[in-house]
Computed example of a mutant assay.
Amino acid sequence: MKSKQRLSDIKAMTEDQLNDEVLKLKKEQFNLRFQRATGQLENTARVRVIRRDIARAKTIAAQKSTEK
């Protein structure tokens, strides 16, 4: 299981990489939601970590797009 991403790692990404990362995280979030609904989710804290990683990546992406 991957732990939350470091802010410095996210800031080093390009906008395209950030968009890909958000997409990947949303897929993982969907899978976690599905596991929770079927009672198979073991690490419930992971849902919160993923949600915050998505917000973090979107925030940095928005900052990078306004810097142009």
Rank of each mutant, 00 (worst) to 15 (best):
G39D: 03
R52N: 15
Q5Y: 09
E67Y: 05
M1P: 02
S3H: 07
I60P: 00
R51S: 15
L7N: 10
D16I: 05
N19G: 08
M13A: 05
D9Q: 07
A45M: 13
Q17E: 09
A62V: 06
T38Y: 13
T66H: 12
Q35D: 15
E15G: 10
A37G: 10
E28F: 00
I60N: 02
K64T: 01
R33E: 15
L18G: 00
K2Y: 06
D16C: 05
R56D: 09
E28N: 06
K2M: 06
E67A: 10
Q29A: 12
N43G: 05
N43I: 07
S65Y: 05
M1S: 06
E42I: 04
V49Q: 07
I54G: 02
K4E: 08
K27G: 15
R56A: 10
G39T: 03
D20I: 14
K2S: 06
T66W: 07
N31I: 08
Q29P: 04
K27F: 12
K11L: 07
A57P: 02
L25D: 01
A55L: 14
K4I: 10
Q5M: 10
A61G: 05
N43A: 09
T66M: 12
A57S: 02
I54S: 01
L41D: 01
T59S: 14
Q63C: 08
M13P: 00
A45V: 12
K4D: 09
E21F: 00
A45N: 14
V47E: 09
Q5V: 08
A12G: 09
L23I: 13
A62C: 06
L32H: 02
R52Y: 13
A37C: 08
V47L: 15
A57W: 02
N31K: 13
L25E: 00
A57R: 00
K27H: 14
R56C: 12
R46S: 11
I54L: 03
D53K: 01
T14S: 08
E15S: 10
T44A: 03
K26R: 15
F30E: 15
E28I: 05
A37I: 08
E67L: 07
K58M: 05
K58P: 01
A12T: 06
T66V: 13
L41C: 04
S3M: 07
R48H: 13
I60R: 02
F34K: 15
I10N: 02
N19V: 06
D53Y: 01
K64A: 02
V47C: 09
L41A: 03
Q29F: 10
R36K: 14
